[in-house]
């Protein structure tokens, strides 16, 4: 069971990372704002994979303990968690050598939803295997 969750998490993390890297490039190109010292390929891959592994553990825990309403509670928790993380890029103080901190939330806020979107995208494939 946990193996399936783990693989789901890893693949979702990779998928979210690819989306994050593409979005970062588009954002840098469109706004000519460079946050690459903070948001770069390493931080994107690291954070997305970590986030999806955490999501996998939450899912495994939900399925184990909640049984019947597991999916409903898990989906709700994941949505609320993703939404509440918005506060981080809004409140973070960047190093002063980084110009246009006003544009930072515009880069990071959409990316906060990438792990959950990737998880939900792959969910039919992985949940089908267990049914």
């Amino acid at each position: 069971m946990l193996k399936k969750e783990f693989i789901h998490g890893i693949i979702a993390g990779i998928l979210a990372s690819i989306a994050g890297i593409i979005y970062t490039h588009i954002y840098f190109f469109a706004n000519e704002a460079n946050f690459s010292s903070i948001v770069n390929i390493y931080s994107i891959v690291g954070l997305n994979v970590s986030a999806c592994i955490v999501i996998a553990f939450i899912h495994a825990a939900s399925v184990k303990w909640l049984k019947k309403n597991a999916e409903l509670v898990f989906n709700l928790v994941l949505s609320v968690l993703s939404f509440s993380l918005i506060v981080i890029p809004l409140s973070i103080t960047l190093p002063l050598n980084i110009q246009f901190p006003e544009l930072f939330p515009g880069l990071v806020v959409p990316m906060l939803f990438f792990p959950s979107i990737a998880w939900f995208t792959l969910n039919p494939i992985f949940s089908k295997k267990t049914r």
Partner: peptide, 10 residues
């Protein structure tokens, strides 16, 4: 002015 935070700058 740059405080490192866009919201604070605004």
């Amino acid at each position: 002015i740059n405080t490192g935070n866009g919201m604070k700058n605004t």
